[in-house]
Amino acid sequence: MTIGLTHYLVLSAILFAVGLAGVLRRKNLLMLFFATEIMLNAANIAFAAISTHIGDLSGQMFALFIIAIAASEVAVGLGLLILIYKKYGTLDLDNLSIMKG
């Protein structure tokens, strides 16, 4: 049984669901970042699999740019996290909800 496009897409969907569960369930900001990385990687796998299946390189280009964007997101996001931690002393979302809505 050879590995086709569907195998990769199913794996990508499973990984995306794992990341989504992490984003919904986590209360720590750093853990939320990790879950976001999981979702980005799942999207990358799907892009690369379809790209190699069709033989068109645009998918791999998109995955490349997603990786670049993820890197810059981590740089800015970690700076913001450090600021929040210095100001409030915690990264827990329940303690950070200062707007009593």
Partner: peptide, 22 residues
């Protein structure tokens, strides 16, 4: 998959740079 360049970039950028940043 056959996407060699993407694999190398993933190795260098993600498991190198991003995880070092974390």
């Amino acid at each position: 998959m056959g996407a060699d360049f993407l694999g190398a970039v993933q190795l260098v950028v993600y498991s190198g740079a991003v995880m070092a940043l974390y």
